[in-house]
Amino acid sequence: MKVELRIQRFNPEKDSKPHFENYAVECEPTDRVLDAILQVKGVLDGSLTLRKSCAHGICGSDGMQINGRNMLACKVLVKNLKQPIVIEPLKGFKIVKDLVVDMKSFFEKYRSVQPYLQNEDPVPEKERLQSPAERERFDDTTKCILCACCTTACPSFWSDPNYVGPAAIVQAHRFLFDSRDKAKEERLNVLDSREGVWRCRTIFNCSDACPREIDVTRAISEVKRNLLFKKL
């Protein structure tokens, strides 16, 4: 099938602002948007710049706005989309080139919530035991692949780039509700602040955009409720 693509282009060395260019490629209906973009890059215009790595929905590097919604280009089939397929970089970040955005601030916020297990108790003889119910408590938020689809779909983040954002809260949730972790206070200092969870307006764009189907808004609401009732 013939697939028409309308891709936002921006070369900082030549362009003063981004513009759209149209392309048409031959694809199988079961091809993904990533395959179509790579065909454009391989056959029509080698200067088209994008991030991609595993191409199987695991690494999270090809997050982009496709027909107005954030998705992973490797997880959506061309046959399921209205044509021309409009492709833009993730919103709210500085564009480096074409579909590549500067994610430095995103990963700074990720690091700010200390996304690793912390426990200063004496190391037990074997593993730190956890019941299936305790593990289930944070199961949903272990699935995050840091693609930034949630954060860049959030109007609160667009209006306030200092907002820690849904992805960092999801990462914090994963450790806040882990029975083995002991560093709740450090994370809550970040989350219980002006730029923390209270910026969330329960708009649900994050949950709708998540390619891993994490209920992001629920995770944020759980942190909010636990802060409010001082349960954490």
């Binding site: 706005q65 027909n67 107005g68 109007p155 708009i203 649900f204 709708d208």
Partner: peptide
């Protein structure tokens, strides 16, 4: 293009 959010986004707008 405006972000094509769903019910949550439009209820908020």
């Amino acid at each position: 293009m405006i972000y094509r959010g769903k019910e949550g986004q439009w209820s908020w707008v």
